[in-house]
C-alpha cells in the first residue's frame, strides 16, 4: 500500500484572527489539496475566549485535523501528541479506503468485529512508523504570544525529537505570522531537523495583527512550490536559512 507523503500544517496560536481571509475556509481549502490542518491553542493564566475557541476547533475540523487547547507548560507533550494523532487519523482514512475497495460498500474498520480490527491496526501502526511526513509549522507571533515563544521553541525541538525516532523521514518548515514586512514570513525552509530554530527564534520580534487566514493560504502554496526541481535536488540537504531574519 502506498500512502505517499503525509502533509500537515501545524498552527500554534493563542486567539482569534483579525485580518484577511476566513481561516476556516482556508483550512478547508488545504484539506481539498491533501493537506491536514492541526491547531494548538496556547493559554497562559488567561483563558481563550469563546470566539477564539470556536475558531480553533473550526479550523481543525475543516482541515481534517486535530485541535487542542492547552496551558503553555503542556505544550511539548501536546504538539507531538496532536501531530501523531492527526497522522494516525489520516492513515486510518487511507486504510479505510482500501478496505472499502476490498470489502465493497461502506464498510470501514469500525464495522468489522473487534477481533479483526487488531490486524488492521497493526498495518496502520506500521505505516505510521514508516511513512514520510512533512509538517509546516505556523507560529502566531502577535503581541500576546511574546512570552510564550520560548515554550513554543522548546515544544518544536521536542517534536523533531519525537518524529525523528521514527524510521520514516520527516521534513519540517517554520513560518511566522505576522512577518516583519509581509503577513507571513518564512523562518526555516524544509529541513529534517529543527535544531537550527534555537538561534533564529530568539531574534523574533512580535507584534501587530493576527492574519491566520492568509497564513494558512500561503502555507498551502508553499507545499506546492516545493515540488520544483530545485528542491528535489536539495532533498537531503541540511537547511536553508532566510537571510531576512
Amino acid at each position: 500500500m502506498r500512502t505517499g507523503t503525509l502533509k500537515q500544517i501545524l498552527l500554534i496560536t493563542d486567539g482569534c484572527s483579525n485580518q484577511g481571509e476566513d481561516p476556516i475556509a482556508m483550512s478547508a481549502l488545504a484539506k481539498e489539496q491533501g493537506v491536514t490542518v492541526n491547531v494548538i491553542g496556547v493559554m497562559e493564566q488567561d483563558v481563550i475566549d469563546d470566539q477564539g475557541l470556536k475558531e480553533i476547533e473550526g479550523i481543525a475540523l475543516a482541515g481534517g485535523g486535530v485541535s487542542q487547547v492547552v496551558y503553555s507548560q503542556q505544550l511539548s507533550q501536546t504538539v507531538q501528541m496532536v501531530t501523531r494523532k492527526a497522522m494516525t487519523q489520516t492513515l486510518q482514512g487511507v486504510v479505510n479506503k482500501e478496505l472499502q475497495q476490498i470489502l465493497g460498500g461502506a464498510k470501514t474498520m469500525e464495522d468489522l468485529p473487534p477481533e479483526k480490527r487488531g490486524e488492521i491496526m497493526e498495518v496502520v501502526d506500521e505505516l505510521g512508523e514508516a511513512v514520510e511526513l512533512e509538517v509546516l509549522i505556523l507560529v502566531d507571533t502577535s503581541a500576546s504570544m511574546k512570552h510564550k515563544l520560548p515554550t513554543v521553541k522548546e515544544a518544536l525541538l521536542d517534536l523533531s525529537l519525537s518524529l525523528n525516532a521514527r524510521s520514516g523521514s520527516n521534513r519540517f518548515s517554520v513560518f511566522v505570522f505576522p512577518g516583519k514586512k509581509t503577513e507571513v514570513e518564512k523562518l526555516l525552509d524544509w529541513t529534517p531537523r529543527l535544531e537550527s530554530l534555537s538561534s533564529i527564534f530568539s531574534k523574533l520580534t512580535t507584534g501587530g495583527i493576527t492574519p491566520t487566514g492568509p497564513a494558512i493560504q500561503e502555507a498551502i502554496s508553499y507545499f506546492q512550490k516545493k515540488r520544483s526541481l530545485r528542491s528535489l535536488l536539495s532533498r537531503d540537504d541540511e537547511q536553508f536559512f532566510e537571510e531576512s531574519v
Binding site: T88, M109, P114, G118, M121, E122
Partner: peptide, 9 residues
Amino acid sequence: AMSVTSEVN
C-alpha cells in the same frame, strides 16, 4: 476505536 484496538493489541 483505533486507540482501543491498539491497546487491545
